[in-house]
């Protein structure tokens, strides 16, 4: 599975406006639903909030992977957003979150879901990948960095 195949390019947000967690989730849901009409913004926002309530998806190193399951969805859908200032996402290491990778999966997609999370995590483990995203000056830069990483394995 390539990340470029599930990433909705039109939903990428280079500089997210929201500065606090729920607003970030809403902005992510809004943008992704606008670019991908099969998604319902309100339902998406709701599942993301519910998921965060179980445990923050802020997994440290400035990265969060908000995700949720949506019944009726037929494939995996993803988007990316960046916050220059950083957001308090109650992350596991207590640091602010700058890079958000949103993953929306169909209800019964255990294997695919895990593989997508693994691939995304491998990308973000790489400090030079994180740096490329932090320093990207356009959406094209972001897409180029992801495409390059996709080509590595």
């Amino acid at each position: 599975m390539k990340i470029m195949d599930i990433l909705v390019k039109d939903a990428v947000i280079l500089d997210i406006e929201s500065q606090e967690k729920d607003a970030v989730l809403l902005e992510l849901a809004k943008r992704l639903a606008a670019a991908e009409p099969v998604l319902d913004e309100e339902r998406l926002h709701k599942v993301l909030i519910e998921r965060e309530a179980l445990q923050s998806t802020g997994i440290g190193d400035g990265v969060a992977i908000p995700h949720g399951k949506l019944p009726g969805l037929s494939r995996l859908v993803a988007s990316f957003a960046r916050s220059k200032a950083g957001v308090d996402f109650q992350s596991i290491d207590g640091q602010k979150t700058h890079l958000f990778f949103l993953l929306v999966v169909p209800e019964h997609s255990g294997g695919q879901h895990l593989k997508a999370l693994a691939r995304i995590s491998r990308f973000f483990r790489d400090a030079s990948f994180r740096k490329a995203l932090e320093e990207a000056s356009s959406t094209e830069d972001v897409l180029r960095a992801i495409e390059e990483e996709d080509g590595k394995f």
Binding site: I59, G60, K115, L117, A118, I120, S121, R122, R125
Partner: peptide, 12 residues
């Protein structure tokens, strides 16, 4: 201690 590392294992 790294969630990113643990997830990258794709441990099904």
């Amino acid at each position: 201690r790294s969630v990113l590392s643990l997830l990258s294992l794709a441990a099904s």
